[in-house]
Simulated scan of single mutants.
Amino acid sequence: MVVRREKKTRKMRGHRTMGWGTKGQHRDRGAEGGRHIGMHKEKWSWIVKYGKDWYGKHGFINPTSKVVRAISIRKLLELVDKGAIEAKEENGKLVVDLTKIGYDKLLGGGKVDRPLLVTVGAITNKAKEKIEKSGGQVILTPQS
Rank of each mutant, 00 (worst) to 15 (best):
K133E: 15
N125T: 03
E132P: 01
P115R: 07
A122Q: 08
T124P: 03
K126Q: 07
N125V: 01
V118S: 01
L140R: 14
G121Y: 09
L116N: 02
L116V: 06
K133Q: 14
L117Q: 11
E129A: 12
T124D: 10
V118G: 01
Q137H: 13
T119W: 00
E129D: 13
G121N: 07
L140H: 08
K130G: 01
K128Q: 10
E129K: 13
G121L: 02
T141G: 05
K126A: 04
D113A: 10
D113H: 12
K128C: 03
G135V: 13
N125I: 00
G136M: 14
E129G: 08
K130P: 00
S134K: 15
E132V: 07
R114C: 10
T119N: 05
A122D: 10
G121V: 05
P142M: 06
V120A: 00
T119D: 01
N125H: 05
P142Y: 08
N125K: 10
S134A: 15
I123H: 08
P142H: 09
K133C: 03
V120K: 09
N125Q: 06
S134T: 13
I123G: 06
T119A: 05
A122S: 10
S134R: 15
K130F: 05
E129R: 13
S134N: 13
P115K: 06
S134H: 10
P115T: 07
K126S: 09
R114Y: 08
T124V: 04
P142Q: 11
I131S: 00
G121T: 06
I123D: 03
I123R: 07
Q137R: 15
T119R: 07
L117W: 10
D113R: 12
T124A: 05
G135N: 12
T119I: 05
V120F: 04
T141R: 15
D113G: 12
T119M: 03
E132I: 06
G121W: 00
P115V: 04
T124E: 09
L140P: 01
P142E: 12
I131T: 01
I131F: 03
A127N: 06
P142A: 04
G136T: 14
L140A: 08
G136S: 14
A127I: 09
V120Q: 01
Q137P: 02
E129T: 12
V120S: 00
L116Q: 06
R114I: 09
V118F: 03
A127P: 03
G121C: 06
K128G: 00
N125C: 00
R114N: 10
K126V: 04
T119G: 05
V120Y: 01
A127H: 05
T141E: 12
P115L: 06
Q137C: 10
